[in-house]
């Protein structure tokens, strides 16, 4: 579904992502694990069109998307829940969700239906519907960020560090939702520092170190890989 080949990204002279190639198959959860600064967020940002790439190719459903503007990429069916949530703090919870479907030409009814589904998934958001999004707790903001991304009814959801800064109870909720989404036909590319949880729910994983893929395999294999165990699973 998504294919990234030989991707190179620079920040001025810093070579942040080096010859990176990954593939995300439809209906799977694929995760990208690695330490801080390994280039995980950079990779996701370039897929969404927010960062220019130096060389390489990114295709979605066999079509190149490297020249597309971010809003058009969202339109094609790739939504991202960005690192740090980046919800619109000055707008209400409901307005944040409504903006999530900004790119989508759909009837008002269908959009309302989508909002209802998100409120069913995250009942707390319904309670806070008219509250300014900036007043939500970290966990609630993460739910809102996921809800906002789902409003465009994406085929592929990019999740950047959804567990960051959340209490364990919220982490559990968020990952339950991620597993539900797979059953609803959403494909997921997950970026996580918490390798334990990422490997436990994903089908396939890539390990990123200083901008380069150093290992890849089924998540089960990687969980039992001695190097990965030492470096990422704290064994």
């Amino acid at each position: 579904m998504l294919k990234v080949s030989n991707l190179n990204i620079y920040y001025d002279h810093i070579h942040a992502v080096k010859d990176l190639s990954i593939e995300v198959e439809e209906g799977k959860i694929v995760c990208l694990i690695g330490a801080n600064g390994a280039g995980k967020t950079t990779t996701l940002q370039s897929i969404s069109g927010l960062l220019p790439i130096r060389s390489g190719e990114i295709t979605f459903k066999d079509k190149s998307i490297i020249k597309s503007k971010p809003h058009l990429i969202t339109h094609m069916g790739i939504a991202q829940v960005p690192e740090g949530r980046r919800i619109f703090t000055n707008l209400s919870v409901l307005d944040n969700l409504k903006l999530g479907s900004y790119a989508i030409k759909d009837s008002l009814q269908n959009k309302e239906k989508e909002i209802k589904r998100i409120y069913e998934r995250f009942p707390i958001l319904k309670e806070r519907s008219n509250q300014r999004a900036g007043t939500l707790s970290g966990g609630e903001q993460q739910m809102l960020a996921i809800g906002r991304a789902l409003m465009s009814r994406p085929k592929l959801l990019l999740l950047d560090e959804p567990s960051m800064g959340l209490s364990p109870i919220y982490v559990e909720t968020i990952f339950e939702v991620i597993e539900d989404l797979i059953h609803e036909g959403v494909t997921i590319l997950l970026v996580e520092q918490n390798a334990n949880i990422a490997l436990s729910i994903s089908d396939y994983a890539y390990v990123l170190e200083t901008g380069r893929i150093v290992k890849s395999g089924t998540s089960e294999d990687l969980m039992n890989d001695p190097d990965v165990k030492v470096a990422y699973l704290g064994a």
Binding site: P70, R86, L99, Y102, A103
Partner: peptide, 17 residues
Amino acid sequence: TATSEDYGAAALVGISV
């Protein structure tokens, strides 16, 4: 309002900055 707060996040929800 969304764009004034965060160009990147606005672009991600499909707003043309």
